[in-house]
């Protein structure tokens, strides 16, 4: 089943990039997409044990998560702009490195969490090892804000149902 999904993704990508819809190019696309999907479908769908309904639910909730992330990116850019253009910037920042453990268990959830930390104001992920994050924060205020609201939202996206409710 995951091979069919990767074939569909690859073939739509082929049509998008080639921009030609005659029989010759489409046949070439079908053959090369089939070959790549047969050889390396594991790369696109890493976790094969996951059910289809679970995949769709994660995708749907992840798309619902994106507007909040976009708002955070705008806020963080405004924050960086404010700091960079402030004449006495060195008195405002107080960098510190902190560690914490996350409750998100799935690998893809941890990856999204690390990237989201990097994109939100004042914090940046240095390392992630088995659920333990090392984060560099510009300010004590931002360091205390982790892993607050974002972890809750991501648990709702990637976590199990009972874990999100509990």
């Amino acid at each position: 089943m995951h091979k069919l999904y990767s074939f569909l993704v690859l073939f739509s990508f082929w049509m998008l990039l080639s921009g030609k819809f005659d029989a010759f190019h489409l046949t070439l696309g079908v053959f090369s997409s089939l070959l790549v999907a047969f050889l390396s479908a594991d790369l696109l769908f890493h976790d094969r044990g996951k059910s289809d309904s679970r995949r769709w639910r994660e995708l749907r909730r992840f798309i619902a998560y994106l507007p909040w992330l976009g708002k955070e990116i705008v806020l963080s850019t405004v924050h960086v702009t404010y700091l960079a253009l402030h004449p006495r910037m060195r008195e405002l920042i107080e960098p510190q490195v902190m560690r914490f453990k996350t409750r998100i268990t799935s690998e893809i959830g941890q990856v999204v969490f690390a990237n989201s930390i990097t994109l939100t104001p004042g914090t940046i992920t240095i390392q992630e090892e088995g659920g333990e994050f090392i984060v560099h924060a510009l300010n004590r205020k931002f360091a205390d804000g982790l892993p607050g609201e974002m972890e809750e939202r991501l648990l709702r996206v990637f976590g199990d149902e009972e874990q999100a409710n509990g």
Binding site: I73, V74, T77, V80, L83, A84, M89, L119, I124, H136
Partner: peptide
């Protein structure tokens, strides 16, 4: 404008880590 502030941040921040803050965030948004 946000790329301008990113550039200023990259040039002005005191150390490597805080420069990465400017580079990582402003770069994506701009």
């Amino acid at each position: 404008f946000s790329f301008f502030s990113t550039t200023v941040g990259i040039l002005r921040f005191p150390d490597f880590y805080s420069r990465m803050h400017a580079a990582g965030k402003g770069d994506v948004f701009s």
